[in-house]
Write a protein that binds this DNA or RNA. Sequence first.
DNA 1: GAGCACTGC
Length: 700
Amino acid sequence: MARWTPPQGGYLKMNVDGRVQVGGGCAGISCVARDEVESFGYSNIERQKQRLPVYKYRTAILYLVETHATTIIVGETGSGKTTQIPQFLKEAGWADGGRVIACTQPRRLAVQAVSSRVAEEMGVKLGEEVGYTIRFEDFTKNGVTMIKFLTDGVLLREMMDDPLLTKYSVIMVDEAHERSISTDILLGLLKKIQRRRPELRLVISSATIEAKSMSSFFTSKRRRQMEDETVGLKMEPAILSVEGRGFTVQIQYVEEPVSNYIQAAVSTILLINDQEPMGDILVFLTGQDDIDSAVHLLHEDIQNRSKNSSGLLILPLYSGLPRAEQELVFAPAPRGKRKVVISTNIAETSLTLEGIVYVIDSGFSKQRFYNPISDIENLVVAPISKASARQRAGRAGRVRPGKCYRLYTEEYFVKEMPNEGIPEIQRSNLVSCVIQLKSLGIDNILGFEWPASPSPEAMVRALEVLYSLGVLDDDAKLTSPDGFQVAEIPLDPMIAKMILSSSQLGCSEEIITIAAVLSIQSIWVSSRGAQKEMDEVKLRFATAEGDHVTFLNVYKGFLQSGKSSQWCYRNFVNYHAMKKVLEVREQLRRTAQRIGLVLKSCEGDILIVRKAITAGFFANACNLEAYSHNGKYKTIRGSQEVYIHPSSVLFRVNPKWVIYHSLVSTDKQYMRNVISIDPSWLREVAPHFYQHQRPSSIPH
DNA sequence: GAGCACTGC
């Protein structure tokens, strides 16, 4: 690779816009700051609690919650809102009489971290007065737990049994500014619940939320009317801001737009290393490729100029990295070395690194966009929002005053960068979301009040897909039993439908294994280095039927080895992933039994396994183009040009008819996880879907 | 013969 040329005669020129107090941050984890955790003793804890900014708002918060149906708390990093507000509420009696205070988080890790911190502060055992629930883990005790932390996804599942969430007196929705799909669905549903349960209190908490738009969402004419009827309770939300406790972060912008942000990032790292006092550097790039080339450029520089940059400890960070390598970023740098973490968005919210003093922000991240017309989700590099930029900058001010180098101009930041990102619900396939609402009895999906409405096209497309799966009827109501059963299974409806069919066909044990494997990222060890060797090992499990059947062979081998980690290591299989497969599989078996499915093995009759897969994924059927030399397929439904991904066991095998699990779009559309089928099955499992196809594409 | 931002049930 060519050596980079430093732009503009050496280094980027930065201008300084003065000192800017930066907010944002991961409230969940950030409240458990190191200085708080490392001290002992009740009085010490008490003193620390009083030092948190939120402490002086205690009375105000309790008053607002008492008198308002909804209270919006805008709190910056380190304000203490997540750990303290539930305790304030409990002390004020909101958990009396067996009622429970709930606090939701978007991520499992945050739920665990925050709940154990709160249990420690209250001097109780986790799982008693303070508990938590995430998928696979329920540390709560009925009648004992007063404060319960949970993911918003778990709370949505709870609504399927108890639509009005009657055991909760207050529900605090934390990190609402992240606008995840679950958070948005939850907010829409909570607004509805409030109409039926005026005594329920909501606390919406977030770092950088546009509080006014959230407030207007929770305000409506009908609500004002209720206000008159419910004496003393204000329906219009209260808004309270709590300052953070982060350090000042000085922001620097480039004077001219940069053409290559990877090179710009690399030269900025070297600039910091030459000119700035010690302190670790965190760089935000978009993905694995960017990160790898930045790491490469830096290593080249170290070799060429050995002196200056040899003091750098360069660490990549992204979710696909093997666990051990990921953990390196948490270890402090050796004496005299400066740590440089080059990361994706994972360091923006999910992971918190201590000791970062300098942040370099490329201004971009990878974001998912869904096209309802083609029904394809794409991952594209897109500009971030001001809210994200502030969040990234805030990562530099956790231990002492820091600096953030933005690789874009101040003018761009002020004039062009959007204030907030597009909520996930407006960028996603809505199939799961629609069936969830249907199962909660929301019949008029198109009339549902969202904090941000998804496009009608995406909504209609989701309804179509669910109709074709036979889980919605002509009136868009859940069918019985299929629709209700699919809604109960905590996976994508197409997977759920596949499981239902497997119960009828007599291969549910196998299909549940396949469903578990498909629901985790990858069961293979990621190793770009030993690719050839890995491909060869993979052939041991490969079958002509396709990837799904290959998964069955891997699972079988794993069980026969006695679930051995050595076996996994030898076979390039990710041991942690396989443990997860076992866990998901167990949950699915329990769910299947609960909803009355038949658990049965097909004893090697793979044909019916492929039929069951077809029953869920018939919409992803593709036909190899006649006389195609390069493995070109066309989707039957949309005549999209697609290819088998080189990681598939069917790559270069190119069966005439295939079904894929998902598409990845790069220079071509690649099908990942592919299985060969007999086209006659398509009409068998989905006659309604295939009867109106063009004559040329009708399977015979 | 190529590459997967991040979550969650």
